[in-house]
């Protein structure tokens, strides 16, 4: 068996090496696939903080993914049409600057996660799942009925937003941005999970009463984790929208929430690199099986069933045979 850290390193290096090789071989489509993996892995790492470490089974993370996407879409659409987003009481203009869009996506999705978390974390178990799902669906239907930004048809952005010093239209440079952000998010979540905060979150997941008797306020640590988790997923949404140069209500849909959760489960719940492994497997299945049959989700379902029944640690857990709290 392979030690988990070596497996993590292999996954990380594979994500870097494949697009570099594709760049050398002039295969931009492969680079775009790798970029998609990196972005979806960011969303999965965000969810894994809440789900894996905090035990919060959120079926509404598409809300934050969509908010991030629409933050990009709204700001970029106003920038490309040269119309301000708001004129009074103060002027807010659109922007094509990626860092500004990311900041807005992070702040808005964190604020939404704070509000949704403050309400949904008063429930547990299946009620928590349903409340988070309900919030996601509320935003889905709101986006559908918002004609100013495309309504059901979504919103196309005709330019790629810019990053200082980079040509973001070059697939390898856009991949580099997504890869660096994924790396930073992995470092952040790794540090968080071993900090006093992460330990408190893990403790509250294991046993609320036990955690409370050492002075941990479970609601507060879970709310902070949910907010950070939402912010990370929102950032992924902004990147995903920029990759496709398109946002649509489907980013808010419960299927999107389910797909993010599938990345986490396939790769390994509560494992730092689990979402990366899951996103890789998902995109590979989508690419190869999707080419054979449009009903490729049937095979994805079988793989998911196999993982849940026979490989509770996901890909990482099965290959490394290292136990994790959720296995």
């Amino acid at each position: 068996m392979i030690a988990e850290r070596w497996l993590n390193a292999a996954l990380y290096l594979a994500l870097l090496a494949v697009p570099l090789a594709a760049w050398a071989l002039d295969e931009p489509f492969v680079i775009t696939l790798a970029t998609k993996i990196a972005i979806l892995a960011i969303a999965g790492v965000g969810l894994n903080l809440a789900l894996g470490l905090g035990g919060l089974v959120s079926l509404g993370h598409a809300a934050f993914f969509g908010i991030g996407g629409y933050a990009m879409g709204i700001l970029a659409s106003h920038a490309q049409s040269y119309t301000p987003l708001m004129q009074s009481p103060f002027l807010i203009e659109g922007t094509k600057s990626m860092p500004v869009i990311w900041l807005v996506a992070i702040v808005v999705s964190a604020a939404a996660a704070l509000v949704i978390g403050a309400l949904s974390l008063r429930t547990t178990g299946v009620y928590f799942i349903m409340v988070t799902l309900a919030f996601g669906q509320m935003l889905f239907f709101f986006a559908i009925s918002w004609p100013a930004y495309g309504g059901e048809d979504g919103l196309s952005i005709y330019v790629r937003n810019g990053f200082p010093g980079l040509n973001t239209l070059d697939p390898i440079q856009f991949f580099a941005i997504a890869f660096v952000i994924l790396s930073l998010v992995l470092i952040l979540v790794s540090r968080l999970s071993r900090s006093a905060f992460g330990l408190a979150l893990d403790g509250a997941r294991q046993n609320v009463a036990r955690a409370e008797t050492v002075g941990i306020n479970p609601f507060r640590v879970r709310l902070v984790a949910f907010t950070i988790s939402g912010a990370i997923t929102g950032l992924a949404g902004a990147l995903f929208a920029d990759l496709n140069r398109f946002v649509s209500p489907s980013m808010f849909s419960w299927q999107t929430s389910g797909e993010i959760m599938i990345f986490v489960i396939l790769g390994g719940v509560a494992r730092l690199y689990g979402p990366l492994a899951g996103a890789m497997l998902f995109i590979l299945l989508e690419h190869f099986l999707g080419g054979i049959s449009e009903f490729w989700h049937i095979y994805l379902g079988l793989v998911l069933l196999g993982v849940v029944l026979f490989a509770r640690g996901g890909l990482i857990g099965t290959l490394s045979r290292a136990a994790a709290p959720h296995d």
Partner: peptide
Amino acid sequence: RCFRGLTVGENLLVA
């Protein structure tokens, strides 16, 4: 009742 999956040091740190 300790927190499983955490080391001895982490069980102390969490409190």
